[in-house]
Structures are given as C-alpha cells and as structure tokens.
Simulated scan of single mutants.
Amino acid sequence: MTTTLAALQKFFAAEAAYITEGTNFDAMGACLDPDVVMYQAEHLPYGGEWRGPDGIEKFMVAMSRTWGSLEFIEQRFVVDGETVVIYNRGRMLARATGRLLETSVMQLMTFRDGLIVEIRPFYLDTAAVLEALAEDRRTVR
C-alpha cells in the first residue's frame, strides 16, 4: 500500500507541475505502465480514450491548453491491493476565460508492478467544467 500511495503522490505532484509550470512529462511518464489507458468523459475538450505513455502525454498537452493551473485542495485515497479510489477536490484556472473552477473528481486507478495501468476519472459536475471553459456561457446549457 505504501508503494502505491507514494507512486500516486509522485504522479499527482508531477501532474500539477506540468499544468501549472509547464514542466516536462518525464516525472509523470515514470509512473505509467507501458499499457496505461485513461478514459475521459467524451464531451470534455480533452475527452476520449488515451493509450500508452505517449497518449497520456498528448492528453496532458490538451489538458494544459485548457487549464492554466491545477491545485489539489484535498485528496483522499482508498487502497485495495492494486486498485485505488481517489477523491480529488481542486481548483483549476481556465486559460481561455480566466474563470477559476473548484470541483471534485473521483478516480479509479489500477496499478501493476507499482505503475499506473488504468485511469478512470468521474467528474462531480461536467456541466460546471464546461461552463468555466465556455467563452460564451449561453452555449453551455
């Protein structure tokens, strides 16, 4: 369990640094299994299925085009072997609109040999995400 939590903390710190500071992807990539896959909600600007470390890096490029900063306010972890449920409450700043969004995301992550092999995020309110990103709020609803 300690190894899994350490890997998660390293991953989330690297993710926040990538979005906020534009650091390189290497720290995040080191946490990923070669067969990693992420499933994002289809209707988000960075939605879809992202495969392999190269796919996750492309996702991060899309994510960092969308958001100018990412700050984790609260994180809770429930570990069951190589499966982890993470509650993330955070703040993100939309690049295009300058709006600050505080929201929550639950993630189901699976590990293999200490590396992340699957990521499934579940947003509390995707409409709020889209509203924060919309330059014309009338197009969201």
Rank of each mutant, 00 (worst) to 15 (best):
Met1Asp: 10
Thr3Asp: 12
Leu5Tyr: 01
Ala6Pro: 00
Leu8Lys: 00
Gln9Leu: 12
Gln9Lys: 15
Lys10Thr: 10
Phe11Cys: 04
Phe12Cys: 08
Glu15His: 12
Glu15Cys: 07
Ala17Trp: 00
Ala17Met: 03
Ala17Phe: 03
Thr20Ser: 12
Thr20Gln: 06
Glu21Cys: 07
Gly22Gln: 06
Asn24Lys: 11
Phe25Ala: 15
Ala27Gln: 11
Gly29Ile: 04
Ala30Ile: 06
Cys31Ile: 02
Leu32Pro: 09
Val36Gln: 03
Val37Arg: 07
Met38Trp: 10
Tyr39Ala: 12
Gln40Asp: 11
Ala41Pro: 05
Ala41Asp: 10
Tyr46Asp: 08
Gly48Phe: 06
Gly48Tyr: 08
Glu49Phe: 00
Trp50Leu: 03
Pro53Asp: 02
Phe59Trp: 14
Phe59Thr: 06
Phe59Glu: 07
Phe59Ile: 04
Val61Cys: 06
Val61Ala: 12
Val61Gln: 13
Val61Lys: 11
Met63Pro: 00
Arg65Ile: 05
Thr66Leu: 09
Ser69Leu: 01
Glu71Ile: 13
Ile73Met: 14
Gln75Lys: 14
Phe77Val: 13
Phe77Met: 11
Val79His: 04
Asp80Arg: 13
Gly81Thr: 06
Thr83Ser: 14
Val84Ser: 03
Val85Asn: 12
Val85His: 11
Tyr87Lys: 10
Asn88Met: 07
Arg89His: 08
Gly90Lys: 05
Leu93Tyr: 04
Ala94Tyr: 03
Arg95Glu: 07
Ala96Thr: 09
Gly98Cys: 07
Arg99Gln: 08
Arg99Pro: 04
Leu101Ile: 01
Thr103Ala: 14
Thr103Asp: 06
Met106Leu: 15
Gln107Tyr: 13
Gln107Phe: 09
Met109Cys: 13
Phe111Leu: 02
Phe111Thr: 05
Leu115Val: 08
Pro121Arg: 05
Pro121Cys: 02
Phe122Ser: 11
Phe122Asp: 00
Phe122Arg: 02
Leu124Phe: 11
Asp125Thr: 01
Asp125Tyr: 01
Thr126Val: 14
Thr126Ser: 09
Ala127Phe: 10
Ala128Asp: 10
Ala128Met: 03
Glu131Pro: 00
Glu131Thr: 14
Ala132His: 07
Ala134Leu: 05
Arg137Tyr: 00
Arg137Gln: 14
